[in-house]
Each structure stands twice: as structure tokens, then as C-alpha cells.
Design a protein around this nucleic acid. Structure first.
Length: 428
RNA sequence: GUGGCUGUAGCUCAAUUGGUUAGAGCACCGGUCUGUGGCACCGGGGGUUGCGGGUUCAAUCCCCGUCAGCCACCCCA
């Protein structure tokens, strides 16, 4: 076996490159449809940029090294800190709200698994400077429209939405202490993937007040039902206020035409510590793959990183899981047509004539190939068929000396004789 | 980083429960069909059986290590 790429890194052969280009085109088209403009930043950043946001423990999961100028640097594991820096630097000059997107290649030093490599491309879409839930709805609609753009339906993919503030209100009203919230978040985040008894044990361990635990456990069944949450906590103004905000969000999503993709699910927490409000994840409905996309509101990050107080929200959608899903559903488009014309000569001494014809066709913006050495006509046609060209321009010695060529259509074998000039004239 | 499963040509798989020059199909390259392709036929390249060690008269097959892949944990981009 030859040694392949480094673990978790990919070689993109033409076939995979076509898939990657297709996906990126959909990403760009959909983002543009919503008025987002593309930006990019450096793939290498100061290590401090990530420490500032996530603390020192994140360093173990990054590609880091000391450069020749003695700087601690890291390959970017995510785009948001870079975005925050860039926006903060020009905060006053930018028209608000900022609607930017990017498709960075990101790196993470972790053991690879299906759907999770050490390198991937990720669509990042962010809105900065807008607190309205309309912005949250707009953001999720972009992610869902990408699903539509690649041919997936609301039966294939579900968007699960929640809000940190609603969850916090429910927990606090139930009697969970402020400093216990983080531990409870962890247990709730996993409740969809673990037996209920495990979740209950974790809650008991995380919460000091037994009454609070009992109340919470009895509420878990209602986590997917916003109305049930509302009626269960009807005596809590804090919860009701958040329930009403969630209803507004869901109304906006329906207005944007993506309501049928969305499920309310209070157990969506998202791991990142910086999310402050609405959060969402996109999953394939069969549960076969990892999350396709995750995002939400992170109103405090700009001030943490850039020293500018601006509300912000965004999502990341990686190419790995989505590509796996599209491959399994056979949704990648068939390879596009490659070369249009193949120039072949009946006479093996005519290679220079072949090149001349190819050159003039290329000057007309046509893609043209030919055998790079003199070969039998049989051989040339075989190569033309292998290359998948539509037409072969055949040069026969006597004919060509009078300015004539024969154009053969490979699909039906039909041949037409014409002057080369008329062929050129027919091409705009 | 921890644990489990797996590892034979580019791909999919064989190889009498250790037995001697590791095979086939597809793919690729070339040839014939006496200069018009996709068919058919013929031929060719390509494996130190992931790598290293051990047991044995003998290892693709058994044991250990290592690397890689897959899965779970961790963690989430």
C-alpha cells in the first residue's frame, strides 16, 4: 500500500473535486440569494485568538506550533473568532446588520471518525448587529435553503431549534441553582442519545435540590412541545416571556417558507459556551449521520474578542457530513460534460494540422483535445470515446488540403462534411 | 487521549480450518478486427498478503508490537 494523505486529511481526485465544487457552488448561490457577501481570513492565526474564547484546554485539539518569529500560532479550527476580529476592527464603518459568509478550510487535531476529519470545509454564515428574532429566522432559513438547494426535503432533514434563555428560565424556575446550570446543560444536551434513566441519574448528580430534580424529570417529556412548556410553567412570567419569543421565531420561520422543516426541541444546547440565545441544529431524519449544521446566537463574543459590543449570530455547515448524506442518497449530479471536440486525422503525418485545427477551435472558446502523438484513426476514435467528447473533427488528407473537415457525432455515428471555415463560423 | 473490530492488486473478493511459483472479475495499458469508436477476442503491467518481530520444517492463515481504517467514549467545527 502506498502511504496516503495524513490521517484525517483528504486527497481530492477529480471525481471528489467535482463534488466539492458542486457543494460550494450551492453554498455560494444560496448565501448570495439572501444578500450575504463573501469574505475570508488567514488560515493561520495567533493561538491567543482561540484561547481568548475557549480557554487553554482547547489547545490540545488544535494544530499549533511556534513560527520562526517565535510566535505561537494555530491552524484555524473555526471561523468565528476571525470574523469577530475583522468586524470589530471596522465596526463603525460597516453598514449594519453585517451579512457575511465564508467557506474556510478548518483544522482540528482530533481522532478522525466517520463524518469527522482533521480538516474540512465549512460554510459559515453570520449576521452581526441585529437583535431581532427575524435575524435568527433569516439565518436558519439560509441553512434550510441549502438543504433544498442540494435536493433534500423536509422528510430527509430536520431542523431542531431551542433557546438558551428559555431553557435557563425553565431550569431556574424549577429550582436549579445558577451555578448548577452548566452541569445540567450537559446532561440535557445528551438526553436524545442516552436512555432516560441515565439522564435522570446525571440530573440527580448535578442538582443539589431533590425537588428541583423531580420537577425537571417530570418535565423532560414536554421538551419537544412548546405549548406544554407554556402551560406547565404558566405561573412563571420569565418562562412565559421566553415561550412567547420562541413563538415569534417560529412564526417568522413559517413566514419565510421553511416552517415545515423546523421542530422545537428544548434539549438542543450546543456545546460551545458562547451561545447566548437561539440555537439550532440540522440532522438527517434517519439519524444515520452526525449533525449537518449547527449554529445560534452569540451576543457576547464580539466584546470578548474584539472589544466591541455587538449582537451576533451564525452557523457552520461542514462539507464532510453533508457530502456523505448526498452520496448515500445519490444526490450529487452526474459528472458534467468535459471536452467538446476531439480532433483526429486519418493520416498519421498530419499531427501539426490537427494542432492547428485544435488551436482555432479553442480560439472560439471550445474545449478541444487530440492525441498527443500520431496514432491510427481507430486508436484516436477510441480515445475520443473514452474522453466522452460529443464530436470528432476528422481531417482527411485530400479533403483537408481543400479546406474541408468531417464532423462525426459519437452518440449516433452521424458524419457531416463541411468546410472548416463554416464550422468555425457556426461557433460563436 | 481510552477501549473494541478490521487490514490480500487501483476497486470487489478467492486461496482445501499453516503446506510450497497468492488467483479471478472489473479498471488500466497494448494488440487483432488490414486505417471510423463504445462490442468481441488475445496479451500486458501491477501484491516482499499494511509494516516489524515471534512460533514452526513451513504463515495470507497462529502470537506480540506498530501503523492505518471503522465504531464507541471524549469533544464538538
Amino acid at each position: 500500500m502506498s502511504q496516503g494523505a495524513l490521517p484525517g486529511f483528504r486527497d481530492f481526485y477529480p471525481e471528489q473535486m467535482a463534488e466539492r465544487n458542486y457543494l460550494m457552488k450551492v453554498w455560494r448561490d444560496v448565501a448570495a440569494r439572501y444578500g450575504f457577501v463573501e469574505y475570508d481570513g488567514p488560515p493561520l492565526e495567533p493561538l491567543d485568538l482561540y484561547k481568548k474564547k475557549s480557554g487553554d484546554e482547547i489547545v490540545g485539539q488544535l494544530y499549533t506550533f511556534t513560527d520562526k518569529g517565535d510566535r505561537e500560532v494555530a491552524l484555524r479550527p473555526e471561523m468565528t473568532p476571525t470574523l469577530a476580529r475583522m468586524v470589530a476592527a471596522k465596526a463603525n464603518a460597516l453598514r449594519k446588520p453585517v451579512r457575511w459568509f465564508s467557506i474556510p478550510q478548518l483544522f482540528r487535531y482530533e481522532r478522525q471518525q466517520k463524518g469527522r476529519l482533521r480538516e474540512h470545509f465549512q460554510l459559515n454564515v453570520d449576521i452581526v448587529g441585529e437583535i431581532s428574532a427575524a435575524a435568527d429566522a433569516e439565518l436558519l432559513a439560509v441553512a434550510i435553503d441549502v438543504m433544498r438547494g442540494v435536493g433534500l426535503t423536509a422528510a430527509d432533514v430536520r431542523a431542531r431549534v431551542s433557546d438558551r434563555r428559555l431553557l435557563a428560565a425553565v431550569l431556574l424556575v424549577s429550582g436549579v441553582a445558577e451555578d448548577e446550570l452548566a452541569g445540567v446543560y450537559g446532561a440535557i444536551d445528551k438526553m436524545g442519545r442516552e436512555p432516560r434513566t441515565v439522564t435522570e441519574d446525571k440530573l440527580r448528580a448535578a442538582i443539589g435540590n431533590p425537588d428541583a430534580t423531580a420537577k425537571l424529570v417530570s418535565t423532560l417529556d414536554s421538551f419537544g412541545d412548546l405549548d406544554a412548556i407554556g402551560s406547565r410553567f404558566a405561573d412563571s412570567p420569565d418562562v412565559l416571556d421566553q415561550v412567547e419569543r420562541m413563538r415569534e421565531y417560529l412564526r417568522f420561520l413559517a413566514a419565510l417558507g421553511v416552517g415545515e422543516w423546523v421542530d422545537f426541541d428544548l434539549s438542543i444546547v450546543r456545546g460551545l459556551a458562547y451561545y447566548t440565545g437561539k440555537v439550532f441544529e440540522l440532522f438527517d431524519a434517519s439519524g444515520e449521520f452526525r449533525a449537518i449544521c449547527g449554529g445560534g446566537r452569540y451576543d457576547d463574543l464580539l466584546s470578548t474578542i474584539g472589544g466591541v459590543d455587538m449582537p451576533a449570530l451564525g452557523f457552520g455547515m461542514g462539507d464532510v457530513v453533508l457530502s456523505e448524506l448526498l452520496r448515500s442518497r445519490r444526490l450529487f449530479p452526474p459528472p458534467g460534460r468535459g471536452t467538446e471536440y476531439w480532433v483526429a486525422a486519418e493520416d498519421e503525418t498530419m499531427l501539426a494540422d490537427v494542432m492547428s485545427v485544435a488551436g482555432r477551435l479553442r480560439a472560439k472558446n471550445r474545449s478541444v483535445e487530440y492525441a498527443l502523438r500520431s496514432q491510427s484513426l481507430s486508436r484516436q476514435l477510441k480515445q475520443a470515446a473514452g474522453a466522452g467528447v460529443e464530436s470528432v473533427v476528422m481531417l482527411k488528407r485530400d479533403d483537408y488540403s481543400r479546406g474541408n473537415v468531417t464532423v462525426k457525432t459519437l452518440s449516433d455515428g452521424a458524419e457531416r462534411s463541411m468546410t472548416f471555415q463554416s464550422l468555425l463560423d457556426s461557433l460563436r
